[in-house]
């Protein structure tokens, strides 16, 4: 069953088609949500929300992008909005409960490469981080990213370069190991 047939069957209320639709995309959606959210429970929430919205809005799907890209767009939107909401709540809690951490320059406290890189990715602006994760980690093309994020492929490329540059700067201490 190709995408068009699947869409028609889901719109017709066929429960088997709905399940096939889910099975076809759930791994990709969950993996992307997990990469962006960094938390299994949150990834499950965002995946569920993505499919609920996808089923609700399937009638509005016009085929301008592939079905896969369309559902990916929903996933990114749901996930980034969810992260934003959680982050704002988290900031309030930190402000109330404990003072912000003061950066340390102690050499023995230096994290290893992976930890430091992940912290640097976390610290990227949302747009850079999303493009970096989708392209360099998950392997999406700039065209797919452009359609999913509703930006031009050129913008996706530019954000990826900036993200990589920031990460290289953040990992300067490890340059000898990976440059």
């Amino acid at each position: 069953m190709d995408d068009q047939q699947l869409i028609a069957a889901v719109r017709g209320g066929d429960p088997r088609a709905e399940r096939e639709f889910y099975d076809r995309f759930v791994d990709r959606v969950y993996r992307l949500a997990h990469r962006l959210a960094g938390d299994a429970a949150a990834a499950q929430d965002y995946t569920q929300e993505t499919f609920v919205r996808a089923f609700d809005r399937l009638a509005q799907f016009r085929g301008e992008a592939s079905l896969s890209t369309w559902i990916c767009r929903i996933c990114v939107s749901v996930t980034l909005n969810g992260i934003k909401a959680r982050t704002s709540r988290g900031r309030i809690e930190v402000t109330m409960d404990e003072p912000p951490e003061v950066p340390t320059t102690r050499r023995e406290a230096e994290p290893d490469l992976k930890t430091r890189l992940h912290a640097a990715i976390d610290a990227l602006p949302d747009g850079y981080r999303t493009v970096f994760v989708m392209h360099d980690v998950e392997g999406y093309t700039h065209e797919e990213i452009g359609q999913a994020l509703e930006i031009q492929p050129g913008t996706s490329k530019a954000q990826l370069f900036r993200a990589r540059a920031k990460l290289r700067t953040a990992l300067a201490d490890f340059a000898g190991e990976w440059a």
Binding site: Y30, R31, H34, R35, L36, A37, G38, A40, A43, L113, K114, L117, H118, I121, F132, V133, D136, V137, L167, L171, F174, E177, W178
Partner: peptide
């Protein structure tokens, strides 16, 4: 670094 990047929030 590439390996570390691919391990970012991997499930």
């Amino acid at each position: 670094a590439g390996e570390a990047a691919r391990a970012y929030h991997a499930s």
